[in-house]
C-alpha cells in the first residue's frame, strides 16, 4: 500500500548476506576523526575508542557483521544543511565510519567524544548512532550509544527516554575502561537476540 502523497514506495531491504566483500574496507574506514585514510585526524575534541562485541542468540560471535557509525562533532554539530549551525561544524571531522567484526565478533571505532545539542524542544545527550548489517539481518538494526559520565543529559535525552524502563536505558550506556594508547576507551557490546534482560534495545528505523 502506497503512503498518501508519496508517489514512489521505498525499495525493499535485503540482507548483505554472508559475502560482503572484505575489499570494501580500507585502512581508516572505522576512524571517524579523519576525512580520509591519508587526512590528519581532527585536532578538536577528546579522542576516544568505542569498541565491543556483536553477539548473536546464545552469545556466540556475530562474525562479518558491518557496523556504521554516525555522530555529531565535539561541539554537537553536523556538517549538513539540516543543522542550523553547520557552518561552524568541525571541517576536519567526518563523523561517519564503517567497521567489520572479526572472528570473535569484535569491532572498534576511533572517534571523538561527541557533543550534545539542542534540537527544537529536545536536548540530545552526547551519543553515537549505530547501524548493524549482517547475514540474516534483512533490515538494518539501529541503536544509539550513550556515555556514562552524562547522567543528567542522558536522563533528558528523548531517544533514550523512548525506552520504557531504566534497565533498558542502562543497556545503551557504554562502559568506560582504562585508557590505552592515549585514548579514553568505551565498551559497548551488542546482543542481537536474547532474553529481555540482555537483548540490546533497537529502534524502529
Amino acid at each position: 500500500m502506497a503512503r498518501p502523497n508519496a508517489p514512489m514506495p521505498a525499495t525493499g531491504w535485503h540482507t548483505i548476506g554472508p559475502f560482503f566483500p572484505r575489499s570494501f574496507f580500507q585502512e581508516g574506514d572505522n576512524d571517524l576523526t579523519r576525512l580520509s585514510a591519508e587526512a590528519a585526524p581532527t585536532a578538536r575534541g577528546v579522542p576516544i575508542l568505542l569498541h565491543g562485541h556483536v553477539l548473536e542468540e546464545g552469545g556466540g560471535p556475530c562474525v562479518n557483521a558491518v557496523l556504521e557509525a554516525w555522530q555529531a562533532d565535539a561541539a554537537g554539530r553536523f556538517r549538513h544543511p539540516l543543522d542550523p549551525h553547520w557552518r561552524e561544524a568541525d571541517p576536519d571531522f567526518l563523523g561517519w565510519g564503517r567497521a567489520w567484526t572479526d572472528a570473535a565478533g569484535h569491532y572498534s571505532f576511533r572517534t571523538v567524544m561527541p557533543g550534545g545539542f539542542a534540537d527544537g524542544a529536545a536536548t540530545r545527550a552526547p551519543h553515537v548512532n549505530l547501524g548493524i548489517l549482517g547475514s540474516g539481518i534483512m533490515r538494518r538494526l539501529v541503536t544509539t550509544v550513550f556515555f556514562p559520565e552524562q547522567e543528567a543529559a542522558n536522563a533528558a535525552d528523548p531517544v533514550l527516554g523512548a525506552l520504557p524502563d531504566a534497565a533498558l536505558r542502562a543497556r545503551l550506556v557504554a562502559k568506560e575502561e582504562a585508557p590505552a594508547d592515549g585514548l579514553r576507551r568505551f565498551r559497548f557490546d551488542l546482543l542481537l537476540r536474547g532474553d529481555a534482560a540482555s537483548e540490546t534495545p533497537f529502534f524502529l528505523d
Binding site: 547475514s135 542481537l192 537476540r193 529481555a196
Partner: peptide, 15 residues
C-alpha cells in the same frame, strides 16, 4: 541467521 540475529523484541519507536 534470520532467527539468531534478529531481536525477539519489536523495535522501539524514537523521535
Amino acid at each position: 541467521n534470520t532467527v539468531r540475529r534478529n531481536p525477539s523484541r519489536p523495535p522501539f519507536r524514537r523521535p
